[in-house]
Design a protein around this nucleic acid. Sequence first.
DNA 1: TCCATAGTTCTGCGATATTCGAAATGAGCA
DNA 2: TGCTCATTTCGAATATCGCAGAACTATGGA
Lengths: 114, 114
Amino acid sequence: MEMKLAVAGLSSLAHEGRLKAFRLLVRAGSHGMAAGELARQLDVPPNTLSTNLAILSHAGLIESRRAGKSVIYSVRYGQMTALLQFLMEDCCAGSSEICAPLKAIALACDCADN
Amino acid sequence: MEMKLAVAGLSSLAHEGRLKAFRLLVRAGSHGMAAGELARQLDVPPNTLSTNLAILSHAGLIESRRAGKSVIYSVRYGQMTALLQFLMEDCCAGSSEICAPLKAIALACDCADN
DNA sequence: TCCATAGTTCTGCGATATTCGAAATGAGCA
DNA sequence: TGCTCATTTCGAATATCGCAGAACTATGGA
């Protein structure tokens, strides 16, 4: 991932409303969640949320598909992973001080299927 | 890490100049790097860099210490790790789709002492 | 076709962010 | 004390962001 895209991704997450929306979508998994449902849970006006979802979408972190009258948003896991990788990838170039705790975090992660 | 601090951290990184400075500091390791040296390598005016370093510092991602006439900046690895953890911590709540690739990244990381 | 529902785009303005010249501060040295 | 280098703080111009009211588009019935 190059710098510009990383900055776009970080910028899109650097906003309380968008970060909350993104985390809800992360929890929603690959099924995603309708824009209206997100707006209800976050208690924000639909137009404001729509703008913020567009920003996240433009940064490549989420995507949308239409399902009837609703528009379903979901996380683009590949892009999310790429962004985290971008933040992590230099950690070992200089020292292992950062790398070791990160490994610990990843390994402590107790997915159902691990 | 709570939401506000995470947003502050992400905001501080959501800027090309600051992200480049941060990555240089990550590479510099715990020895850190002088503000002037950073300004030279990044080719930005000292006062602009100083402002941006203050923003990263206020977000808790870096810290500074004076060494003679220079001020040495270095990454606060603990805070950096906490921020990454904040972004990762919900990944398993919903599904393992995100978690698995992250584990792979962390494990692929080939620190000298691993 | 007409209506209701679900989202998006347009628009304007107040708030915030970014930048850098210039001045101020701090440290070392003679 | 006087001088210089390194960095920060101030100030003001400029650009960008964030928000929500209003208008618009799309879909699915009746």
